[in-house]
Amino acid sequence: MHTIEYLDQLESEAIHIMREVAGQFEKPALLFSGGKDSITLVRIAEKAFRPGKFPFPLVHIDTGHNFPEAIEYRDRLVNQLGEKLIVGSVEETIREKGLTVPVGKFASRNALQTFTLLDIIEKHGFDACIGGARRDEEKARAKERIFSVRNEFGQWDPKLQRPELWNIYNGRIHKGENVRAFPISNWTELDVWNYIRKEKIDLPSIYFSHERLCLSYQEQLVAVSPFITIDEDDEISMKRVRYRTVGDMTCTAAVESNATTIDEIINEIIATKTSERGETRIDDKVSEAAMEDRKKNGYF
């Protein structure tokens, strides 16, 4: 008789899912954002495929509004891994397709990412994209299968999901369709942090406490950057902050914190009374079904 710790169970499940993607698809890709969830996916991929190469490239959708620290980290990691990186530029998509760029105080390119992602999928003929989405993040995500079939427009149909039984994943698709696969579906935010601690995974510096010039807006702290509009009566001050999630500079809020180590971060997350997305994402608050709508439109 053996017992297996829950974190080892989650890791083993994630490795199994990733190997299913590698075994079932011709041309998979791993979507890499530079955030802790996709960094976790990279570690899982190492465990699943070493000493071989990854059977997929990393794909980063670069909005042009990323934190420089995340880009720096990405390049360092790819270099260490010796794996292929494909960068899809939202800037280019905007130019080539003549897309209308959102305006406003925190004009976010979050919605435009989808265009670039679908372009990259089409251009490279990817039939599966591995993503770091977790079901505990948001209530529409809580509904999604581990292998989520998307039509040729990348759209998710929540009413027509395939039954997904036991640990058997059906990745069969028609030409033009693709599958989004989520190996860490069953992980929570805290599981990811505990795993990062256990595996001693290096993270971008913005996850740790640092000084940053911030704009206070509706009780959220937004980094001062060239991508946001600053008005005269805005309240701007230097804060000690860290990031709980890493998205675009325009739509990710910082949290005040003195945590400089993983242990300190974990203690803060255990004590927090606010959810990850609630505290740090400006883009989810638009409507009750914001995430569901974006997913229906091809968002990952």
Binding site: D136, K139, A140, K143, S185, N186, E292
Partner: peptide, 21 residues
């Protein structure tokens, strides 16, 4: 808390599995 889809909230029923942790 668990009826995460718009159609579920509109009809007040659960259509698909929701996972909670």
């Amino acid at each position: 808390l668990t009826d995460g889809l718009r159609a579920e909230r509109e009809q007040g029923i659960t259509i698909d599995i929701a996972y909670k942790y």
